[in-house]
């Protein structure tokens, strides 16, 4: 085992790459839960984002249309969740889980119908990497961040923007108020329903951007169930990050680093003993369980998180 394997530039580059889809899902979760709606359909939003991004990329050969389609697909799935949990006041976990199953079934079926056994075409338009050529000469930094995908940078920008939005703007104050005490917010004239719809739709679009990153930015193809639970890991990162965008990014980077290590330590030995990489690969998930159970970084959910809200009066 060498330092290179632990903190080399390529490990850091991989960390950022692997953290991005998780961070986007975590951002989605943060925005939704800050308004009081638990959205575990993020996994599904991500998956339909992956798929419909690829389909439109294939048909239109226009990356902008493809991205728009990905976001729209994720947003529509989230809209179903919003309707079920806000308007119908259904159980948010049941609705979210049902939509995840729907997303998996739908994409798997359509994938088979449209691309059969040959798979998606290999000449798909893709979201390009951003080559920061001025960093080329700088050791370490150039390799670590010089060739990241555009969506990685967009994601980082979103983290900063949403952090400011939630905690420094009027709309952000109302957004958090609705997630903490919707009745109090309503008595001072805040429209709880509208706020929550906006939040759930935004969360679907954010997760779908993470999906588009996976299919259009990295893999340049679609395979069934390719999100592999990243939407759920994103929810863990949200909790780990204490329901703040910056915290969510930090947690996602830890998970991403765990993933990156399990690749870079492949075949590494310590004192002659081979590292059990497969076991190391489970580290992010163990961290997840600890985070969810509250053992790591005790954090408090918004008080009205997951509770359906019924408007008072109207009698």
């Amino acid at each position: 085992m060498t330092w290179e394997m632990l903190v080399g530039a390529s490990v850091l580059a991989a960390t950022l790459r692997l953290a991005t889809p998780i961070a986007l899902a975590a951002l989605g979760g943060t925005m939704s839960e800050r308004s009081g709606v638990v959205n575990i359909a993020l996994e599904g939003s991500m998956l339909v984002g992956c798929f419909f991004g690829v389909v439109v990329a294939d048909r239109s050969h226009n990356i902008w249309l493809a991205l728009a389609a990905a976001l729209l697909a994720g947003l529509l799935l989230a809209a179903l969740h919003a309707y079920a949990s806000i308007t119908l006041r259904a159980d948010q976990i049941v609705s979210g889980m049902a939509l995840n199953i729907l997303a998996l079934g739908l994409t798997t079926y359509l994938d088979y119908e449209m691309y059969g056994t040959t798979g998606t075409p290999s000449d798909l338009v893709a979201v390009p990497d951003l080559h920061l050529t001025f960093l080329n000469g700088i050791p370490y930094v150039g390799t670590a961040i010089g060739d990241q995908n555009w969506i990685v940078w967009v994601g980082l920008l979103l983290v900063a923007a949403l952090q400011v939005f939630l905690f420094r703007t009027v709309l952000g104050l109302r957004w958090r108020a609705v997630g903490e005490h919707p009745r109090a917010a309503e008595t001072v004239g805040v429209n709880v329903r509208r706020m929550r719809y906006a939040a759930v739709l935004a969360s679907g679009a954010l997760a779908a951007l993470g999906g588009a990153y996976l299919s259009l930015g990295v893999a340049h193809s679609f395979t069934d169930g390719m999100t592999g639970g990243r939407g759920f890991i994103g929810l863990a990162a949200m909790i780990f990050g204490r329901w703040t965008p910056v915290g969510a990014l930090g947690a996602s980077l830890i998970f991403g680093y765990g993933n990156a290590l399990s690749t870079s330590l492949q075949g590494a030995t310590v004192g002659g003993v081979r590292l059990p990489v497969q076991l190391l690969g489970t580290l992010p998930y163990i961290l997840t369980i600890l985070a969810v159970a509250g053992f790591v970084g005790r954090s408090r959910a918004p008080a009205a998180d997951g509770l359906p809200y019924e408007t008072e009066g109207h009698a």
Partner: peptide, 23 residues
């Protein structure tokens, strides 16, 4: 009808902030 994790001032103005988009 107060929101515990928010400050006194935030609770007072919530819904009628009378500022621009920034708080």
């Amino acid at each position: 009808m107060l929101i515990p994790p928010l400050t006194v001032a935030e609770n007072v103005v919530l819904g009628d902030e009378r500022s621009g988009p920034m708080l």
